[in-house]
Every structure is written in C-alpha cells, then in structure tokens.
C-alpha cells in the first residue's frame, strides 16, 4: 500500500528526516509517535506530496508520489497540522470545492458532503462562515475534507489537537471506524492516544525511525521481563525456600517491614502464570499474600527510553 524507501529531507544543514524506510498495509491504523520536532509532520507532508524529499522514494499503491502524483494523491486524504480552510467560506461551500478538486462526480457530491459532515459532526454549522467557527469545528472540518472522495488512505496530522475530551472520544471512534476499511495514519505526541487507537506504532526521534511494531508487541518486547511486587505475611527467612521451589524466578529482592515482607521479583514467564504459581506456593506454605501487582513497562517508558537513546547517540 504505502512504501517508503530511504527517505531523507534536508533543510540546508538541518536534517529533518534521515533515511526513513517502512511499509504500511491496507486497512490498518498506524500511529506516528515522536517528540515535537522529531520529523512527524515533515514525513507526513512528504507522504502526501506537499513537500519534496531530498532523496528517497515514496510509492502509494504502486504510484510514485512525485512522478505519478495525480494517481497517488487520489488515494490520499490529508489533514495537515493546521487545517487548511478558507475563512470567508461556509463549510458546505468549502467541502464542495474540495470534492470538485477530487473529481467526485457531480451527482454524488451532495450526498458525500452530507455523509462526511455527519461523520465529523459539523452539519449544524454547515452554513456559517468558517471564520466564525471554533477550533474544534475547524479541526473536524479539516478531517471532513480529508474524508471526501473516499480515499483509501487517510493521513491525519495531530487530529485531536484543540478538541475537548468528548470530541476527542468521538474522533477516536471515528478513526477506529475508518480503520476497518481504510488505511489510517495519524501522528501524535500523546502516547495514550496512539495506544488507544493505533494497531501499529512508528516511533520517530531526531528524524530517524527508532521503532516500528505492533502496539501490543512493543509493550511486550520492550518490557522484557515483567516485574511482580508482593506483600506477604511472612518473615524474611520464609520467602527464600518458597521461591527457590518455583520455576521462572529470575531474581528477587526482599525487604522486611514489621510482620510483612515486601517482595520484588522478575520473571520471564507470562505474568499471569507466575501469579497463579506464586499464589499456590505461598498458600501451601501457609503464608498469605496480602497484595500482588504486576508491572510492565508502559508505552510511556518505552517512548522515553527510545527517544533518550537517540539523544545520547546524537550527543556522541
């Protein structure tokens, strides 16, 4: 569907994107994640043909975005960082203009405009001047514009910026719905958003791709060993024999606290299985577990770690 090979973009001496390569498949939701200034918008602008690359290649369904721009762009709907709206127009006029540019046949235009306005909930302001609309409406009108012409790929640059929490929920639902039959790419510097919506995450830092994995895999992969924390009603000496009898305990530390011990252990087994074994083991030993929690590196920590590594590399 989308193939990016060795994409590089330089502004003078500054390299905004360096040697980026990835492919994206049909019908999935991708998230571009990275700190501000990491090259997310630059990459998206290149993918949509708004910006030319210094070197590298982008093909959309086999059409080169630079050589065969018209065919490639017909497959894409794009919401840039700043919604590109004409303030002295009404949403209806504006959408009509975009639909015409996208070659939506005249007899389908009104119907399609009605549909995208409904999807993005801008119908109620359809005949007001865009200049008088709130940030939330403008953002959603920008999304509506991207959906016109039924593009197979929808690229949204920070789609939920400026929306209130309720609207954010609605837009996320909309994006998830789109993901069923479209390829959706969205960028964000908010991790929970990517975690909530995207199936696959591409983390960009300093213009480089530092990770490209399934959202779930990324957590599992980078979490490495899961950590368990327990509070057991037992003495420090009682814990060792119990744990020694269990398999999969990589390491542990014990800390005595009155009648209890606080226990931290790392395992390479599935945390749920480990919990079950721990429960029975301590139960058989007659030592009740008072508290048991599993901790796993969140996307947040992974993100910080990955982007930190990048900075350190750059510093060297």
């Amino acid at each position: 569907m989308i193939e990016v090979k060795h994409l590089t973009k330089r502004y003078g001496d500054h390299t905004a994107v360096s040697d980026l390569s990835f492919t994206m498949e049909r019908g999935r939701i991708y998230g571009f994640l990275g700190p501000n200034g990491a090259g997310k918008s630059t990459t998206m602008n290149i993918l949509t043909g708004c910006l030319s690359a210094t070197s590298g290649e982008v093909t959309i369904d086999g059409h080169d975005i630079f050589e065969d721009a018209r065919a490639a762009k017909k497959l894409i709907g794009y919401l840039p960082e700043i919604p590109p709206l004409y303030p002295d127009r009404t949403p209806r006029e504006y959408l009509n203009f975009v639909a015409e540019c996208k070659d939506v046949p005249g007899n389908q235009r009104a119907e399609q405009i009605r549909r995208v306005m409904e999807q993005t909930a801008v119908t109620e302001v359809a005949d007001r001047l865009i200049r008088n609309l709130s940030k939330g409406y403008r953002q959603r009108l920008g999304i509506a514009q991207a959906l016109l012409g039924d593009p197979e790929i929808v690229i949204l640059d920070e789609p939920t910026v400026g929306l209130d929490p309720r609207q954010i929920m609605e837009i996320r639902e909309l994006i998830k719905g789109l993901g069923r039959d479209h390829t959706v790419i969205l960028s964000s510097h908010i991790l929970s958003e990517v975690q909530a919506v995207c199936e696959r995450v591409l983390i960009i830092s300093g213009g480089k791709l530092v990770a490209c994995e399934e959202t779930a895999d990324l957590e599992r992969h980078f979490a490495g060993k899961a950590a368990l924390e327990l509070t057991v009603e037992a003495g420090k000496a009682d814990v060792g024999p119990v744990l020694d009898a269990l398999e999969g305990v990589e390491s542990f530390s014990v800390e005595e606290n009155g009648n209890y011990v606080n226990l931290k252990l790392e395992t390479d087994r599935e945390p749920d299985d480990m919990c079950r074994d721990l429960f029975w083991a301590f139960s058989d030993a007659g030592k009740p577990i008072l508290r048991l929690t599993t901790t796993r590196a969140s996307l947040e920590e992974i993100f910080l770690e990955l982007t930190r590594e990048e900075k350190e590399e750059n510093a060297q």
Partner: peptide, 14 residues
Amino acid sequence: RQKTTQLLYSLPIS
C-alpha cells in the same frame, strides 16, 4: 498565509 497551499498541494490537481 492561510496555509491553504497545503490543501492545494495535497489535492490531485497540478
């Protein structure tokens, strides 16, 4: 100024 050039660039028109 309005950044609507971004729209023009991304639409399938030359």
